[in-house]
Design a binder for these strands. Sequence first.
DNA 1: CGAACTGTTGACACCTATCAATTGCGGTGG
DNA 2: CCACCGCAATTGATAGGTGTCAACAGTTCG
Lengths: 250, 250
Amino acid sequence: MAPEESCIIRHFEHYRRLSPKEKEILASLEKAPTAVSAGTTLWQEGKAASEFCTLSAGWAYSYRNLDCGSRQIMEIFLPGDIIGLREFAFNEHLEGVTMIEDGTVCYFPHRRLLELFRDSLTLTTVTFAISNRQQALLCERLVTLARHSARQRLAHFLHEMYIRLRQTMPEGGPSFRLPLSQQQLGDLLGLTPVHVSRTLSAMSEDGLIYRNHHTINVPDIKALAEEASFNDLYLNTNLRPLFEDAPPES
Amino acid sequence: MAPEESCIIRHFEHYRRLSPKEKEILASLEKAPTAVSAGTTLWQEGKAASEFCTLSAGWAYSYRNLDCGSRQIMEIFLPGDIIGLREFAFNEHLEGVTMIEDGTVCYFPHRRLLELFRDSLTLTTVTFAISNRQQALLCERLVTLARHSARQRLAHFLHEMYIRLRQTMPEGGPSFRLPLSQQQLGDLLGLTPVHVSRTLSAMSEDGLIYRNHHTINVPDIKALAEEASFNDLYLNTNLRPLFEDAPPES
DNA sequence: CGAACTGTTGACACCTATCAATTGCGGTGG
DNA sequence: CCACCGCAATTGATAGGTGTCAACAGTTCG
């Protein structure tokens, strides 16, 4: 595939325009696409970590298995995301990663990221920015877990996914496909699947969302944001103008 | 003060040995120390962001004010930490920052970090690693908020602080000073101050901790870790050996 | 058509929030 | 040095949200 079509390049260009050389560096990360089917575990927590991968197609999630027997889903990955970025500094994977749907991933060794840091200041800052944004997503979820009701948590997550999906697919209408089971939603939001079911039903009855299998229809996105007391500051991915007059490359 | 004594250099050297030139770059971040008293707010959420600062002395925390009137403390900063690193990519501060005790901070503009990225691959990777570690702390707290009881949350936080403090002050015995009010603990762990009080009292009665004003004594750190089902993987700050054969500086 | 999984619904228990009153502590001024 | 004030911490009673257990319905896929 031509570099221009790569998800990861689109993702990076969301933050900053890239030169052909920079695009080439990014494209080189996706030299070895691997097809993976739904339910495949890319790696397990605790295993030695030596690689990242980019997600070219399909959804994935990372998770932690807890001593108490339950499981916490940490992050939902969409096409264009780099999986494992957070674990760069660690020798073992802190989280396992599993595919939600069939998809395609491209593994690349940690060393490649160092080369990227060495070769391009722009890619370095954008990578750092992507990491920052990921962290902001975590912070928002942390807030909802600490302080919000089950209904607010679900409203918040649905709104977040709506926004994230619209950033890559600007025209998608009021509905989107959410290929997560209620068990997975519960594992993500710290709820039991039973309570997820009850809460989603209540939200449907109140006309906040409509559900059809795995398709969610949001008739009034502002009402959903209101319900979640959503803070859209953190999804703003525009880099500060500062970067325009960044110090010159060496 | 001589560069060797700076908290932030000690912090960075925890990850990787630094050359004199690299130490100098770091020391240059701390050119303008400012004394700040307990309760001072360094900046508020939503305000335009143009600076980071290093924390040279004293404790601080970052927080979010929520629509529902309560407040979520996101992060506790100790001497040697860089405050605001997470907000690098954003134009506005996502979080406010307030001093817990009297202390000293050194502001420096965002641009300085770009210069650091440009001038030293080692400092770039260590900065990225520090950001990763911060993220790992967040993940752990997210897990405890999602799935653990009040007692487990408190045990976990106390254990985490114990470990973090020992990393800078290796010999400190079984007790440490924790200058946080129960209101602040509640805001950090998603609990009401009333319930924090009850839970700490119960932990004291069970001999898990002893309290004296703001000093916490942990007679059996392993018991505390057990109680919290603590995962010490994420506090492991040793960079992977990979960094030893990092590509040469340009 | 049946098995296995996912989602729904009901009854009940438990943890934590809420509201309120009281105690203890630190700082201030007489 | 002591009385006083304000804040932090404690303790009690009650309410509410979510977990747990269990049964049942619906969907998917062989």
